[in-house]
Design a protein around this nucleic acid. Sequence first.
DNA 1: TTGGAGCGCGCC
DNA 2: AGGGCGCGCTCCAA
Length: 557
Amino acid sequence: MSSTARVHLSRLPGERVRVVDGDHTEVLDPAALPSYVAGREAHGDEPRWVWDDTARWYPALLEAGVRVARCHDLRLCHRLLRRAPAVDASLLDGEESALWDRLRPFEPSDPALFSVDDAGEHLRADLEDARQVAAVAASPEAVRLSLLVAAESAGALVAAEMTHAGVPWRVDVHDRLLTELLGSRPPRGARPRLLEELADEVRGLLDSPDLNPDSRPHLLAALRRAGVEVPDTRRSTLRRVDHPVVEPLVRYKQLAHLFSTSGWTWIDQWVRDGRFRPVYQPAGSATGRWSSNGGGALSFPVQVRSAAVADEGWVLVVADVAQLEPRVLAGMSGDQALARAARGADLYQGMVDDGAVPTRQDAKLGLLGAMYGATSGESGRMVAGLTRRYPAAFGLVEGAARSGERGEVVRTLLGRGCPALGGGSWDESPDAPPDDLDDQDRHRRAYGRFTRNFVVQGTAAEWASCWLADLRNRLWRLVDEGPLEARPHLVFFLHDEVVVHTPADLADRVADEIGASAAAAGALLFRELPVDFPLNTSIVRSYAEAGKPGAPPTVDA
DNA sequence: TTGGAGCGCGCC
DNA sequence: AGGGCGCGCTCCAA
């Protein structure tokens, strides 16, 4: 690791904080921590703060106006290193290591630093950190793992900062939208007027006055009585049926979904003081992608994005990567031909221009099919032809699938290992391999599809972490002073997309930095093979205006 | 009353 | 027989 000082923070019984800085140890009152940290940051040496869980320590610092430059998140990295195939796991064993194995992510509902019967209260950050540093150093993949560990920790800082700042949210706009589509807010437990009218229309058309359209069995029975035979009530299934009930029923399902997932209850729960503050879990999924356990940050529908509106005099800079995963595949596999197709804004078109496929749609189907393990249909057929044109790229995912089918674990470019077959979290069957041979075979094949996708999705997540980490620093340097939320700052991240809230006069520079950090992330991960990571970037007042190619950037009201 | 499973939806 | 996730709903067992 670098010469950066590592300062270890641990909780002590009696609500004290132990600070270990090299040979120097002191004990602080938690209330004194922000000024201590601010003092160390101000000296410019920017130590690496080592703590058990960023989500536990950092919010209070941010609340006090203290931003840190770097950290090491022991819980995240412990998990990572435990599973990394290139790490000698025995180096992680030692005093308290079983407790680190069991440490759960910090929950925002917990008291910030101390809770009564919390085993973690006694965990020694300095001891665990020493084991992790040694485990990385001893690995043949030390360089890549160091990068991964740093990027993941930086991601944890970004997550806490985004929750702290929040997405600017106009409740009045959201409410107006809901009222137009659903009618005014109903009393608790009731349907809004327009939704109820649609339900009535469906009941009438199916001649089932008591039907609850939210109940699948009832709905299936009512459809059957009306002569509609369907295996399920999915929208795509219903659309194939020719019956007058289909149109109002599909509309009902759409609006019911909006009402329940993004309606007034959601506003009450997640929007405070004009900010939507989702809770992120960096590396919360098996592949290393972020997950979210609050606010539905990963799925808030396009329909309500118009309520995300920049503050007066500010704008949102929205940027997403075009075809992130195929580009990552090109980079990690070293596939020269695919990398060549990836020069420029549209990788799929690049494959067409390359003469590999007749149409853009074919390119997309074939590539996605290869990454997801499609075996049949149009997608499956495309894969065969493309394998000849892009042998390294297609060979890489194919190899990962074979490894999985043999029951082996696979790893990402930076060394994250996937969960073992039957190990639990990759699917819902913890152990107990099926006794039936056919089932066992199916199980292995499913695992092969998982490992196939894991290598690409996981490496894409690593690219995104590096992107975020670099962008975070660049944004911070754009302005000389002021707390985080008074400067250009990240407010949202979703796999391959970022949103930055910034004073309008800095928007162009922010857009440049987003592009520069994307290029930097690519160079960092795939130095041997330059792959482009072009962005669709919009400067908008409202999130809903973003992402329309050709739409003029609107900077005024 | 509660918790988990399964469904269907939405995001990538 | 296409990967990852969260969430709200209904239904049913405890």
